[in-house]
Design a protein around this nucleic acid. Structure first.
Lengths: 147, 147
DNA sequence: AATCCTGCTGCGAACATTCGCAGCAGCGAA
DNA sequence: TTCGCTGCTGCGAATGTTCGCAGCAGGATT
C-alpha cells in the first residue's frame, strides 16, 4: 500500500535498519483498524503472505523498537496480553479500563497535558502520556451504580 | 505487630476471609519500606517463619485481591516484574519511569486529580489514579540532554 | 462444640514475554 | 558490484504471571 514508503522512511530516518520483517509487521499494524496483540499481528502478516515466516520474538522486538521510536504505542492492560496500535503523529488518546469487567473506552484527556508539564517541572522527566491505560470502574461496575 | 488487627479487620470488613496466608503476606508488605515483587514478599514471609510454606500463586492472588480492595497497589513498569506496595488510605503518589535507563522517581501529581474529574464527566468512569506508573525519559536520557 | 457452605490454597501446567546465542542481511563504503 | 560491519532474526530456553482443579479451612449458624 501507499504508506509503506513512509514507514520505511520513518524507520531509516531514526537510524534503524529496514528489514522485511519490520516492514511487514509495521504495515500490518498500520492497516489494522483497532489495537492488536503480538499474536494477532503475526496472524495478519501470515495472512498476507503465508510464506512469511516471522517469529513471535521478532514481532515483540519490532514493536518494542517502534514504540521507542514513537511509531507505535503499547498498552498493557489488566487482560494480561499487551496490545499495540499505530501512533499517528501528533495524536493523543487515553484508554480507560474497568478493572472489574474489563470494558475499555477511549478518551482524549486534555488535563494530562498539565500532568506532562507538572512532571517536567517537578522531576525533570519528559513524560510520554500520549497513550496511556488508566484503571478504574465503569458506570456499571462502580459502587454508586448506574446513576 | 500492632497493625495486624487492622489488616485483619480491613480484610473482613470487605467481606473476604482472613487466612493465615493473607495475614502474613499483607503484613510483610505493610512493613516493607519500599515496593516489593511477589517473590520478595514470599522471601520475607519465609524469613519471618521458615515453616510458612506459602505458594507463589497465593502471593499473586492475595495481592490481586488486596489491590481490588484498595489495600495495596500494583505497579507494572517496563522492568517486566510487577511490584506492589501498601496503599496508605488517602495517600496518592505517582511513579515516573525512564523508558531508556529504568530510573524511577516518585512524585505526587496534583494535576491528575483533574484527570479523574475529566474522566468522570467524559466517560462516567471512576478512575483510580492514586498510584500510577507513567513512562517518560529522565533528565539524563532525554534528547535535550542535561540542561 | 459440631456442621455446612463456599471461598481460598497448593500444585502443576499453560500462557505471555524476554533473553542468549549463532548466523543472516541491510546498507554504507570501496 | 562487492565487501564488511554490526544490527537484526530465529530458535529455544528462561522468566514472570495466570489458570484449573481437587481438597482444605474460615466463619456463620446451630
Amino acid at each position: 500500500m501507499s504508506c509503506e514508503p513512509e514507514i520505511a522512511q520513518a524507520v531509516r530516518d531514526r537510524g534503524r535498519r529496514l528489514t522485511i520483517q519490520r516492514a511487514k509487521i509495521l504495515s500490518a499494524l498500520r492497516h489494522a483498524d483497532e489495537h492488536q496483540s503480538a499474536e494477532q499481528i503475526l496472524d495478519r502478516v501470515r495472512g498476507d503472505d503465508p510464506l512469511a515466516d516471522i517469529s513471535l520474538s521478532t514481532v515483540y522486538r519490532t514493536l518494542e523498537t517502534a514504540t521507542t521510536l514513537q511509531l507505535t504505542s503499547e498498552l498493557r492492560g489488566a487482560s494480561g496480553t499487551a496490545v499495540y496500535e499505530w501512533a499517528e503523529p501528533g495524536t493523543t488518546h487515553h484508554h480507560i479500563e474497568c478493572t472489574a469487567c474489563g470494558h475499555t473506552e477511549v478518551v482524549e484527556l486534555t488535563s494530562l497535558r498539565l500532568a506532562e508539564a507538572e512532571i517536567r517541572e517537578r522531576a525533570g522527566f519528559e513524560a510520554d502520556i500520549r497513550h496511556l491505560a488508566i484503571p478504574g470502574l465503569c458506570r456499571d461496575c462502580r459502587p454508586g451504580g448506574d446513576g
